[in-house]
Amino acid sequence: MAGQQPPPEPREDDAPQPPNSGQGMVAVSYLFAGLVVWGGAGWLVDQWLGTKGIAFAIGAVLGAAAGVYLIVRRLGA
């Protein structure tokens, strides 16, 4: 069983694609992480300066944008 070789032919372009659910999860986790990290940072700034959600909003938008950018860089063509 363990001694067998993997399939000799490497994947060709017309071969079935490998399971891509990993990539989907990566994309979702980048989006989520962007929102949480920079939204969270913005929220902390809000607490610190006593502003009411402005920093949080900026942080969340910035984080989501950065998440999208990361997805494009890491997973894009």
Binding site: V37, L62, G63, A66
Partner: peptide, 16 residues
Amino acid sequence: ILPILVPIEFFSNFIV
């Protein structure tokens, strides 16, 4: 842009 991206990478890769 790295200062913005690195925390996201860390959070996404090692916590999420």
